[in-house]
Simulated assay, not measured.
Amino acid sequence: MDLKEVQSVAREKMKGYCRVCPVCNGVACAGEVPGMGGSLTGSSFKINVEDLNKVKLKLKTIHDAKNPNLNFKFFDTNLDFPIITAPITGSVFNMGGALTEREYVDSAVNGSISSGTIAMIGDSADLTMYEEGINILKEVNGKGVPIIKPRENPSVIQNVKKAEKINPIAVGMDIDGAGLVTMALKGQPVGPKTIEELKEIVSSTNLPFILKGIMTPEEAKLAVEIGAKAIVVSNHGGRILDHTQSTARVLPEIKEAVDGQIMILVDGGIRSGVDVFKMLALGADGVLIGRPIVIGAFGGYKEGVSLVLNNMKNELYQAMILTGCKDLASIDRSKISVEW
C-alpha cells in the first residue's frame, strides 16, 4: 500500500463528499458543508493553504544536524513527533458513510498510536459519536484526548466526567464549533462561552484542558487566564466562518502574546511534513492534522492513517536535516522567510 493507492481508494469511497484532489486546497469543495469543504465561498479553508504556501524554508547543509530528534513532550506523554490527529466526527453526513463512525475513529486512534503519536476524538450532533470515541480510547488505556463541543455547561461537564473515567492524557473543547451548521441542523445547541463559563468547565477537572479555536492574541491570553494548559490555533478548517484569517498568519502574534505560558498547537492547511516545519517555525509547539487523516482512514483504515502520519514524519525529518535543525527547539523563525 502506498499513498497513491490510499488516495485512489478514498476517492471512490468518498464520492460525492470529497474528490481527494491532487492538492487539498478547498477550491473544488468550496461551500460544501456538510461535506469536507469550507463555509460559503470556502475562503477560510483556501487561505489556510495559500498563506502556508507563502512560507519558505532556508536550505542549509553545512552543519552537524545529521540525525534530528523529533520527540515531542505532550503533557506527561512522549510522542515520536509533533503531529497529532485532529478531532473529526461525522463519517456519515460529512464523509459519505463508507466507514461507520466507530470504524473511522478506530482507524484514527490506532493508526496514530502505531505511528508513535495519538489522536484526539471528537463530539458531534449525534450524541453516540462521543461515546464511541470514549469507548475506543478506553481500549487503548486512554491514550488520546477527547474534545467536546461548546454545548451548555452542564452537558460539557457531564462529558468531561465521562472522559475522566478512561484517564486520557487531557480533555478539551473546540470552542470554534460554536457556529457549526451540522450541529444546528441536528438541533444541538452550541455557542460562545463567557470567561466565567469557561472557568467553571476548566475547574471541574484535574485533567489538562485544551481550548481549540483560538485566532487572536486577546483570546489566547484569556485561555491562559481561565486555566487552560494548551490552545489550538484553529478556524475549524474554514468550516464555520467565511473570510477569516489563516492560522499561519495569526500564529506568530499569538506566540508573542502567550509564549511560555501555555502550549500552542495549530491546525489548518497542513498537508506535508514541510508544512509542519513551517508551523513550528512560526511559533507552534505541535500541530493537528485533519483532512489528510480522513483520506488515510477511508483509503486504508488504520494502515492508511499510519502511512499518512509516517510520511509526514519522514518529510519533517528530512526538512530538519536540510535546514540544520537538531531538534524541535531548533526550528524557529530564523529558518524560514515569509512572503506576506
Results as ranks from 00 to 15, higher is better:
Asp2Tyr: 05
Leu3His: 03
Ala10Gln: 06
Arg11Leu: 02
Tyr17Cys: 08
Arg19Cys: 01
Cys21Gln: 14
Pro22Val: 01
Pro22Lys: 02
Val23Thr: 08
Val23Lys: 10
Cys24Pro: 02
Ala28Trp: 09
Cys29Pro: 08
Pro34Arg: 05
Phe45Gly: 03
Lys46Leu: 08
Asp51Tyr: 14
Lys54Phe: 03
Lys58Met: 03
Leu59Asn: 00
Ile62His: 11
Ala65Thr: 11
Asn67Lys: 14
Phe74Gln: 12
Phe75Thr: 04
Thr89Pro: 00
Gly90Trp: 10
Met95Phe: 15
Ala98Arg: 15
Arg102Pro: 01
Asp106Arg: 15
Val109Trp: 02
Asn110Val: 02
Ala119Gly: 06
Met120Pro: 01
Gly122Pro: 14
Asp126Arg: 09
Asp126Cys: 01
Asn135Val: 07
Lys138Tyr: 03
Lys143Ala: 06
Pro150His: 08
Val156Ser: 10
Gln158Ala: 06
Gln158Val: 00
Lys161Thr: 00
Ile166Tyr: 11
Asn167Ile: 01
Val171Arg: 01
Ile175Ser: 03
Ala184Glu: 15
Lys186Glu: 15
Glu196Ala: 14
Leu207Trp: 03
Pro217Val: 13
Glu218Pro: 00
Leu222Asn: 07
Val224Leu: 15
Ile226Asp: 06
Ala228Ser: 03
Val233Trp: 10
His243Asp: 10
Thr244Phe: 04
Thr247Cys: 11
Arg249Ile: 01
Val250Cys: 05
Leu251Arg: 07
Asp259Lys: 13
Asp259Ser: 15
Asp259Arg: 04
Gly269Val: 11
Gly273Val: 04
Val274Gly: 07
Val276His: 07
Val287Thr: 13
Gly290Gln: 05
Lys326Val: 14
Leu328Gly: 02
Ala329Phe: 00
Ser330Ile: 12
Asp332Lys: 13
Trp340Gln: 00
